[in-house]
């Protein structure tokens, strides 16, 4: 039984009525376990005692209106939140049972296990397609003999190999937006993370490129634990197995995606998914 849920009962938010038993089968292990996570930018609190368990090898979507703390939440997962000046947090996040915020844990090593894809495609402009895929290894001076194999495998996984295999030496910025985003996914996968965080990865892409990325997620979840932030509810419904709804920094509801969209337990969730606000 996941501990985060039982703990949340003692939190200050009485509306959390989720029952752990109906939201998560016991067979799925929690990859990331978030307990009582609060986060601030200076004096402004953007996350309020959020607790949730991210299941392994599934796609978990995080939805909510702009400014609800979705991006901050996943930036806490790979310790990117603390890079912003005056940012702070409280609470704990466990990756496979290990506290990633414990003393002596190097954020750099956490980020090698938890990869991230950003809102806008951001390939490195001075690097070729091939070098972009290998960027994680190059930047960290990791020597690997089988770079060709790594490049091919990562690009295959990102469903980009067939489109670029004949021009690996060309600059990554010469690709289309959707291809650039898949290149960024390949770049994240090349360092072989366990978890892949995606912060609105399709918001800068056209519908066709979006479909390709969504299809990709379905194959990627066989190997990776994926957490996707999206402002697009249809997208969450299409790609995810579980969905978390955040509102003004609070976790309102976290359950199976089907259940969240068809029979939400919280009135605010219902209002949001039926388009009454947002």
């Amino acid at each position: 039984m996941p501990e985060a849920f039982s703990e949340s009962a003692c939190g200050p938010a009485p509306y959390r009525t989720m029952q752990p038993s109906d939201s998560m089968p016991d067979t799925v292990a929690a990859k990331l376990s978030v307990q009582e996570l609060s986060a601030w930018y200076g004096e402004k609190q953007v996350l309020i005692r959020v607790s949730l368990d991210i299941p392994e090898r599934q796609v978990t979507a995080i939805i909510g209106p702009s400014g609800c703390g979705k991006s901050t939440l996943i930036r806490c997962f790979n310790r990117m939140h603390e890079l912003v000046p005056a940012a702070k947090h409280r609470g704990s996040i466990q990756l496979d049972g290990e506290d990633i915020y414990a003393n002596g844990v190097d954020p750099v090593l956490i980020r090698r296990r938890i990869g991230m894809v950003f809102q806008k495609p951001n390939p490195f402009p001075m690097m070729s397609i091939r070098d972009n895929v290998l960027a994680g290894l190059r930047l960290t001076s990791t020597r690997r003999a089988d770079t060709d194999a790594i490049v091919e495998r990562a690009l295959q996984q990102a469903a980009l190999w067939s489109e670029v295999k004949d021009r690996l030496g060309e600059p990554g910025t010469g690709l289309s937006g959707g291809q650039q985003q898949r290149l960024c996914i390949a770049r994240a996968l090349a360092v072989e993370p366990d978890v892949l965080l995606m912060d609105e990865p399709c918001s800068a892409l056209d519908p066709i490129a979006t479909t390709r990325i969504e299809d990709l997620l379905t194959t990627l979840r066989e190997r990776y634990t994926i957490i996707i932030v999206t402002h697009n509810m249809q997208q969450a419904a299409r790609v995810s197995q579980k969905t978390a709804f955040l509102l003004q920094g609070e976790l309102v509801e976290f359950t199976e995606t089907d259940a969240l969209f068809t029979k939400p337990k919280d009135k605010r969730t219902e209002d949001y998914v039926t388009g009454k606000f947002g």
Partner: peptide, 27 residues
Amino acid sequence: VPLALREAGLALGATQWQVVRQVVLPM
């Protein structure tokens, strides 16, 4: 040099020095 590129480097598990040396300075 866009912040997005620094973040991309850091998110790949590079240290700040590695990002400065190999991403920011060349640009």
